[in-house]
Structures are given as C-alpha cells and as structure tokens.
Amino acid sequence: MTLRLHPFTALTAAACTAVITTAAASWPLSVAVGLASAVLAVRRGVAGRVLSAAAVILVPLFLSLLVLHGLFFPEGHTVLAAWGPARVTAEGLRFALELGTRTAACVLVFLLFSFTVSVPDLVSALSARRIPPQFGFVLASTLTLLPAVAGRLERIRQAQETRGMVIRGGLWSRAGALRLQMIPLVLALMDDAGSRAQALEARGFGSPGPRTSYRDVADPPAQRLFRAAAFVLAAAAVAARLVVSWPAGGPS
C-alpha cells in the first residue's frame, strides 16, 4: 500500500469496524469482515503473524463455544441429537456460530491494526493530542520491554540451570524452580525501573506543560474526514441497535 495512514485513522477504522460488526450481529457480515482483514493482512505482508496470533486466541474459544452451546443449550427447541443430558440443538449451534464469527472478526481487525501500526508514530500522535504523555510512555515502554524481558528470563533460566535447577518432578520442586526464576527477574526489573525513573526525572519527564516531538506525523484532511465519517457510522449503528433491541421490560 502506498497510502500512509495516520495511526489514528487506522485505529478509528479498526474500532469502528469492530463496533459495527458487534452491533450488526449477523454472521455473514462477521465472516466478510474477518476475510477482508485476512486479505489486507496478506497484502501488508503480516499475514503469518496476524493469523498465528489469531489462531492461538480463537481456536480454544471456538472449541469452548462449540462444546458449551453445541451440547448444552437449554433454550433450544430444535433437537438434532441427544445423548443423556447433552442435546445438540440448531439454536445452540447457531448461537455458537454467531458469537464465534463475531469475536473472530473483531480479533482479526484489531490484530491487523496492532501489527501494522508503527509504534513510534502512534506515540508521537498520542502526545500531539491532549492525551497524557504518561500513556504514550507506558505503551511504548511496555512494547519495547516485552522482547527484552523474554531474553532476560531465558538467561536467568540458563544461569539457574547451571547452578543445578531442574524443572521436573512434583508440584513443590516445580514451584521451587519457579521461585528461582521469578525472584531474580522481578528484582532486576524493579532495580532497572528505579534507575530509569531517575534518568527520566532528570530530563523533566514529570514536569507539566506541553511536549514537543521530533517526529511529525502527517494528518491529511481526507483522513480527518474519513475518521469523522467512521465515527458517525459507528454511532448510528450503535444507536440503531439500542433502539431496536431495547429490553421491553426495562430495568425494574
């Protein structure tokens, strides 16, 4: 894609798509949204990461929904098969399909956003708005810390195994091995955080006032217009859903 999206445009598009899909509650639309996200992921070259991350999340959820609603759905009337207390009903399978596809569509849309967005762009766009700069710091710091910590945990494990730690055996020896890895990790991270706090404080991180940024993220008027339109569309979808299925009895 040659078009460079402002991070907020991508975020708005993802969020509004998810909201509209949830409000519409029709499985053909959910499937279409999911497929469109997958196609976009292929075109942006992140299909492998998006689809594997989505599979890790969705496969257990699908299985759980299938067992839960496929076999036990007391509200169902059209019984397709029955073994003792378990009854396969058409309504239950339909419910599992609706909710499964809806969740899948939302997960794919958001993963597409998070795997294509440039985190530095997102952070500088956040700090250019009136969003507390602390939020951008927490977001960027966590996303960069995660891979570093995974590497550090691996080194701690190797070091402790050199000293004779074995991850094997009963519950207690496993818990002991866990303790041997956890405490050095937490200790090191807290210590790092303390020195990072001093460094940030020395550079005026805690002081109030506006921030300037080296990065300037272009925000063309067309994308602003698109964001506004997407907001209106999502709000309309939510309003329509609220009006259509407002509980008849209301809160008693």
Binding site: L145, A193, G206
Partner: peptide
Amino acid sequence: PTSTLVLIPVALVL
C-alpha cells in the same frame, strides 16, 4: 509520581 509510573510497564510485562 515518576517512580511509580516507570513501574507500570514492568508490571504489565510481569
């Protein structure tokens, strides 16, 4: 305070 703020990413990672 900044000393607490820098701990939040650590907590998320933990």
